[in-house]
């Protein structure tokens, strides 16, 4: 079977379980983003795939071959470290050619591949520069080129863009994604920036406390989060309490939402609804009545904070859609049932 198969991997440091029985199947050519809060075991999982950390139990299978016992240097993978780890004593070209050089490739072969990769990362003619003289974004690209020199089967990156400023980071996200698609290489990127994950990934894997909480395509993660943690972690969401009343209707904040069904046997649950799905209108009718407490006009979008009882609801709309609301005004909040996701607890 082609692709990467992570088979019940566990890593314990003493008594502390950093990665807990993780199973994941990554088809060949997939771009995976490992997403999660700090300390949830993303780096540890990536390092185990790279062979830099030995799993306590479980197996890692690449294209049908169990690579768990192989040392790092025999795994044929490319890795970009958070610190980049460019060799300070070598020029850009020699950094990129390192993997070829220690395999005894000829000088011409090395030069040809270096030129090829420099073109790929849009830095042609940089081969003789010392790495210390590069800008942050350029070093980033050199680290990527160096990792790709041997056309590895697996491309691993640990928070590769976190050191860049916001603008450059967004540009590099797009560039990295395009590069990956051109090469068709199976790629795993660790990040704790959910926007980054949404931009690049085919498959977003949300981790928490050493476990995988949900693994799905980005839009599915966004639309159908598996639980409150995922819903809250990916983007902004409203988490509202829902109950089934005596008449069997599902109610949110005391107002019945026709068309919203709870799973059988559940009478109380959390419901997630994205701010852009919340509609504001005139109070009355079937809408939940609330009061506007704050309006944040960002130009492109307007965020309206509405208080219903003691619960705050955020609604986002474009200026065109949003009727003029002002702080203190009474509004009616409508929650379309098809946008409400009942979360498992």
């Amino acid at each position: 079977m082609s692709g990467l198969d992570i088979n019940a991997i566990t890593k314990a440091f003493g008594n502390f379980i950093a990665v807990d029985n993780v199973r994941l199947n990554v088809p060949h050519g997939t771009f995976v983003c490992l997403l999660g809060p700090s300390g949830c075991g993303k780096t540890t999982l990536l390092r185990m795939i790279a062979g830099l950390e030995e799993p306590t139990s479980g197996a890692i299978v690449l294209d049908g071959e169990d690579i768990t016992p192989l040392p790092t240097h025999k795994r044929n993978l490319g890795m970009v470290f958070q610190s980049l780890a460019l060799f300070p004593h070598l020029s850009v070209g020699d950094n990129i050619a390192y993997a070829l050089r220690i395999r005894g490739a000829s000088k011409e072969e090395q030069k040809k591949r270096v030129d090829e990769l420099l073109t790929l990362i849009h830095l042609p003619g940089f081969a003789d520069r010392p790495v210390a003289k590069l800008s942050g974004g350029q070093r980033q690209r050199v680290a990527i080129a160096r990792a790709l020199a041997l056309s590895p089967k697996l491309f691993l990156l640990d928070e590769p863009l976190s050191a860049l400023d916001a603008k450059l980071r967004e540009a590099m996200q797009v560039e990295l994604r395009q590069l990956q698609q051109r090469l068709g290489i199976t790629t795993i990127v660790v990040t704790h920036d959910q926007r980054e994950a949404m931009t690049m990934a085919d498959l977003v894997v949300v981790m928490g406390h050493g476990r995988i909480l949900q693994a799905a395509p980005p839009i599915e993660i966004y639309r159908k989060p598996a639980d409150a943690f995922v819903a809250d972690f990916i983007g902004i969401t409203n988490l509202l309490p829902a109950e089934v009343d005596s008449a069997g209707r599902t109610t949110i904040l005391g107002t019945a939402i026709p068309g919203l069904a709870m799973p059988a046997g559940v009478t109380k649950a959390s419901v997630s609804i994205r701010p852009e799905d919340v509609h504001l209108g005139e109070p009355g009718g079937r809408a939940i009545t609330g009061q506007v407490t704050f309006v944040r006009d960002l130009g492109g979008t307007i965020e309206t904070f509405v208080e219903v009882g003691s619960t705050s609801i955020i609604a986002v709309a474009t200026p065109r859609e949003r009727p003029n609301v002002s702080v203190g005004a009474k509004v009616g909040v409508t929650l379309p049932p098809e946008s409400c996701v009942v979360l498992g607890s």
Partner: peptide, 29 residues
């Protein structure tokens, strides 16, 4: 010395001994 230098060399196919001689030693020349 940044330990990831050595790890980077290993992911690029250098055994730990090889990486010691062609990364750690020259980096600290």
């Amino acid at each position: 010395l940044d330990p990831t230098l050595l790890e980077a060399a290993r992911t690029l196919g250098a055994s730990p001994v090889k990486a010691f001689f062609n990364v750690v030693t020259p980096a600290l020349r």
